[in-house]
Design a protein around this nucleic acid. Structure first.
Lengths: 160, 160
DNA sequence: TTACCTGCAAACCATTTGCATATCA
DNA sequence: TGATATGCAAATGGTTTGCAGGTAA
């Protein structure tokens, strides 16, 4: 995949996302506003794991003319989460982080040194989780897994 | 194991815990107070997953004469967590829950209907987590996994 | 006796809400 | 035009902190 292909795919993907969002709003008698669009766009273009505050800062930087308030960020994130367009993660610290797309499930490995989050999926674990849930008499709804460690970069950094 | 054996074992276990705690305090020039003892005891005797507030309520009920403040509960929980005698869990909702013992690792399955938490360990998942971490170039520190679903009880309740 | 603890109330910080104004449809 | 959104500031709820008085060692 070259840069051009990638760009095209991302554009298509974003347009899909945007029209899903518009659809969602219409269905619920809600309005499509610039603020809502920008929030979706920032979520899409960012490294995917943002705190409400981080998202707010980013928007202030990129679109200062909008003067978007933090309350709107929170309101929009709740809206997106309720309609399952974004998922929230709550790790050890206080405060949630948000990422786009609940549909393609994955787990997270978090570097405790630099805070970076990498995603992964493992079929063996997915399968085993189902088995365990059934064995314990539960009906599974969802699951999440986090591994904490030191990433490659930080391992090298500490050796300097 | 009969009731008597169980009681004995639990007593031994609790005494061990208590002396570890005293040891810890002594090493750091801290004091052993009734409040601290009661907090440890409540953590030990409770169903193991408590919010600071829940713990505070419990203490007010069982030992109203102490008039223990919520601040002390928070301070003691931090102390215990820093010294790895308790672990905190932060699930979807806001606020943490605390449980005794960081040593014996386990995962959690949470009923989204009644909020109850069941613990389990699965060797296959544990092993796979190690493999994945190494494959991604990380050095693993710890990991946690939560499954959300509806427990047996709540499944039956909803059929009434 | 002295350092550490405690309860209280005030302070904090992230998140939510009420309200008057602004904007989409 | 009318319903929904927005920004602001105030309210909230969980957690932390400063302080004056209390307690373990």
């Amino acid at each position: 995949m070259n840069a051009y292909t990638d760009f095209t795919e991302r554009t298509v993907e974003y347009n899909k996302l945007l029209s899903d969002f518009k659809q969602l709003l219409k269905e619920n008698g809600l309005k499509f506003t610039i603020q809502r669009e920008v929030i979706l766009e920032m979520l899409y273009n960012s490294d995917e794991h943002l705190t409400p505050e981080g998202l707010h800062h980013l928007i202030q930087e990129k679109h200062p003319e909008l003067g978007t308030g933090i309350a709107t960020v929170y309101r929009t994130l709740s809206l997106l989460e309720d309609s399952e367009m974004v998922t929230s993660l709550s790790f050890g610290a206080q405060g949630k982080k948000y990422e786009l797309g609940a549909k393609d499930h994955h787990d997270h490995i978090i570097c405790t040194s630099c805070g970076n989050i990498t995603e992964f999926v493992d079929e063996e674990i997915e399968r085993r989780q189902k088995e365990i849930t059934e064995a314990l008499g539960f009906v599974m709804q969802e699951h999440s897994m986090q591994i904490y460690g030191i990433c490659k970069n930080c391992q090298t950094d500490s050796k300097k």
